[in-house]
Amino acid sequence: MIARILSISLNSFRENLREKLLYNLLIFALLMIGSSILLSRITIGDYHRLILDIGLASINLFGVLIAIFVGIGLVSKEIDRKTIYTIVSKPIPRYAFLLGKYFGLVITLLANTAVMVLGLLVVLYVMDVPITGLFFQSIGLIFLELMVITAVALLFSTFTSSTLSAIFTLGIYVIGHMSGDLKELAKKLDEISQAIINVVYYVLPNLERFNLKGHVIHGLDFGASDMALTISYGLTYAGLLLLLAGIIFQRRDFQ
C-alpha cells in the first residue's frame, strides 16, 4: 500500500511542478532573500538580524502561500477534471489517495523550502552571518507549520470549492497566529467569551508554536524538550486533520 501511496505522491509532485504559481512564488521568495543583501547595505548597525529576519520571513510566508494555494487544488482539481474517477475505481482505498496527494505536496514543499533555505544559506555565508543550530531548528518548525497548513487546506478541499478552501485556510492561518493573543485578551472578558476563545485556542492549530524567528534573531535558546513537544504537537495535529479529511472524503460522492 505504501508503494501505491508513494506513486500517487510522486504523480502529485510532478503535477505540482507544473504549477506556474509555484515558480512565481519561488522566484519572488529568492528575490526577497537576495534583496536583504541590498537592504543590509543601507541599514545601520545590526545587518545580521535584518538578513535573518527577511530570509526566515520569506521562507515562511512563501511556503505558506504555496501550501495554501497549491493545497486547495489538490483534491478539488482531481474531482473537477474527473481524474479521480480512474483512481478511486482502482483497488486502493480513498484515504490512500488522500495521503498520496498530501505527501505529494509535502514533497513539493520540501523541495521548495530546500531551494529557499539554500538561497538564504548562500546569502548568510556571503554576508558572514553566523549560522547556528537554532537556525535549522527554526527552519524545521517552519516546515512543520507548512505541513499543518497543507493538511488544513486538504481538509477543506475535500468538501468545498477551491475558492472557499482558500478563504477558510487563510482564516485558520490568521487565527492560528492570533489565538494566543486572543486568549490573553479574553482574560479581561466575561466567562462565556473566555470559554469560546479557549475552545478556539485549543481546538484550532496554534501556529505561533512553530515560530522561532524571534529566538533565532536574539539567540534565545529553545530547549530539546520544547522542540520535541512542538514537533509532536505539529505531527499530531496534521494527523488529526488528515484523519478528519479521510472520514469526510470516504463518505463523499464524486459527482
Partner: peptide, 26 residues
Amino acid sequence: FLPESPYFYDYLTGAEFLRFYGDLFG
C-alpha cells in the same frame, strides 16, 4: 474502468501514464 469523456494527467507521456495506473494496481 474508462470514465466518460475523461481528462487525464496531461503532463504524463503515454508510457508514464500507463505506468502510474500499473503502480496503483501494485
